[in-house]
């Protein structure tokens, strides 16, 4: 009876291990460079697999772009230059962080705006509710 459990555990462990990182043997110059690479590629969308970053994806497309990004880093390109290069080819869709642009205004400010207006409604309601009790003497004519 124990065997199915072991099989399931092994399967889960295997699934987790492949999902963790797609590793290419890229010859980084330093730990700092590797960390920069991992940070940058984790912010980029793998276009063919959508819900994975370039860092995590095992797709051929992601491997090739990782290699390309690595090469550009070796050439001394900054993160911004690399992102511009990618956006010129694949549009801003490749960035997980959407840039602030007219088309993304709702995305950036929509939630705070809704939250603020909700807060305002609460404040107005609370004021209305407390005022009659405290101000009956001041303006008795406003009771209805």
């Amino acid at each position: 009876m124990k065997r199915p459990l072991v099989v399931i555990l092994v399967a889960v462990a295997l699934a987790l291990s492949t999902a963790a990182f797609a590793i290419d043997p890229l010859p980084f110059r330093s730990t700092a460079q590797r960390e920069r690479f991992q940070h940058l590629t984790s912010e980029l969308r793998c276009m063919v697999c959508q819900d994975e970053s370039l860092l995590a994806s095992n797709a051929d497309f992601a491997k090739q772009l990782r290699r390309q990004i690595f090469d550009m880093m070796q050439q001394g390109k900054s993160d911004e230059q690399i992102k511009d290069w990618l956006v010129a080819r694949y549009s801003t869709f490749i960035l997980y962080d959407p840039p602030l642009a007219p088309s993304t205004l709702a995305l950036w400010f929509g939630t705070p705006a809704i939250l603020l207006s909700g807060g305002l409604v609460v404040v107005v309601l609370l004021r209305r509710r407390t005022r009659p009790a405290g101000s009956i003497a001041e303006d008795p004519g406003d009771d209805w």
């Binding site: 276009m47 063919v48 959508q50 956006v87 010129a88 080819r89 694949y90 549009s91 869709f93």
Partner: peptide, 9 residues
């Protein structure tokens, strides 16, 4: 389909 992104090119 979100995969079909308009090309910036």
């Amino acid at each position: 389909d979100a995969r079909f992104v308009p090309s910036p090119l």
